[in-house]
C-alpha cells in the first residue's frame, strides 16, 4: 500500500473498514491481552476470508494459543475487536455461544470423550438442540445417522465406529476430534497443532484431510511443523511476541530476514 493511496482512503476510512470486514469470516483487530504483566498479545490484527485455509506459525510463546482462546471466548481481550462474519462481536460471548455460532475448535492435546464410542463422540458433537431437556428426550434420527456415517468416512475411522475412543491411537484421536468439529457444521474451524505427536504418514493424511475440509469451511491451523505447513499449501501468518511479523506464501515468508531471525537467530 503506498502513501498516496492511504491518504486518499482516509476520507472514507470508516467505509473502507466496513468493506474490508464484509469480506471476512474472522476479523481480529488491535487485540491486546496481558496476564500478570506479561503481554501475551500485542495489537494483533489479521483477517481470514470465507473459504480460506490459513496457517499460523510462530515460536513458543508467540501467542498462538492465546489467540485461539480469545476467538473462542475462553479469554477476554483487554482491547481490540474480534468479529465473526463481519458483524458478530465475539468478545462478549462465552464458549458455548461461540461454538453454536459456528466456530469449532480443536485442542492441542487431543480431547475426545474417552469412555464413549467413536459413534457416540460424533453424535454428541452433532449440530442441533443443546438444551438439557432436548438432550433428555432426544432420539437418534436417520438424518443424524447418515451424517455420522459420512463423517466416519471422511476421518477414516469407519471400522472403529463402535470402539471406545480411549482405545484409539493418538493420531486417530486427533482425527476423531476433527470429525467432531465437522459434526458441529461450523463455518470456521480453529485447529491447534493437529499433527503434534503423529507419525509421518498420519501427518500426510491429516494435511490431505484439512485441505479437503477447507473446500467447504474456513480453516485456521496453528502449527509448528514446517513440513506440514508446506503440505497445506496456503497463506501463512507468522506470529511473534503477540503480533503479526509477516504474512504471505510460505516461500515468501521464509525468505523474510525477520522471520529467519526469530526462528533461527537465537
Amino acid at each position: 500500500m503506498n502513501d498516496a493511496m492511504t491518504v486518499e482512503m482516509n476520507a472514507s476510512d470508516e467505509e473502507q473498514v466496513k468493506s474490508a470486514r464484509s469480506e471476512t469470516i474472522l476479523y481480529v483487530d488491535g487485540v491486546s491481552v496481558t496476564f500478570d504483566g506479561f503481554r501475551a498479545l500485542n495489537n494483533l490484527s489479521f483477517y481470514v476470508e470465507p473459504g480460506e485455509l490459513r496457517a499460523i506459525i510462530g515460536p513458543n510463546g508467540a501467542g498462538k494459543t492465546t489467540m485461539m482462546d480469545i476467538i473462542t471466548g475462553k479469554t477476554r481481550p483487554d482491547t481490540g475487536d474480534v468479529l465473526f462474519k463481519s458483524e458478530i462481536d465475539l468478545t462478549k460471548m462465552d464458549e458455548a455461544e461461540i461454538a453454536n455460532l459456528g466456530i469449532g475448535r480443536k485442542f492441542q492435546k487431543p480431547t475426545v470423550f474417552e469412555s464413549h464410542t467413536v459413534f457416540d463422540n460424533l453424535l454428541l458433537a452433532a449440530s442441533g438442540g443443546r438444551g438439557v431437556f432436548q438432550a433428555l428426550f432426544h432420539r437418534l434420527s436417520d438424518a443424524e445417522k447418515i451424517k455420522i456415517e459420512k463423517t466416519l468416512v471422511t476421518i477414516m475411522l469407519e471400522d472403529k465406529r463402535d470402539e471406545m475412543a480411549a482405545n484409539l491411537s493418538h493420531g486417530q484421536k486427533q482425527w476423531l476430534e476433527i470429525g467432531m468439529l465437522l459434526m458441529q457444521e461450523p463455518e470456521l474451524l480453529l485447529v491447534d497443532e493437529p499433527v503434534a505427536g503423529m507419525t509421518d504418514s498420519e501427518t500426510e493424511e491429516t494435511a490431505k484431510l484439512l485441505r479437503s475440509i477447507s473446500k467447504e469451511y474456513s480453516v485456521v491451523v496453528v502449527e509448528h511443523d514446517m513440513e506440514f505447513v508446506r503440505d497445506l499449501d496456503c497463506k501463512v501468518t507468522v506470529l511473534h511476541e503477540g503480533s503479526v511479523l509477516a504474512e504471505g506464501r510460505l516461500d515468501h515468508v521464509q525468505k523474510d530476514p525477520r522471520v529467519i531471525e526469530v526462528y533461527l537467530g537465537r
Partner: peptide
C-alpha cells in the same frame, strides 16, 4: 459422562 471426561471439550462443542 462427556463432562466427567473432558469438560472443556463439551463447552467448545456448544453445550452449557
Amino acid at each position: 459422562i462427556a463432562i466427567r471426561d473432558a469438560e472443556s471439550r463439551v463447552r467448545f462443542t456448544g453445550y452449557r
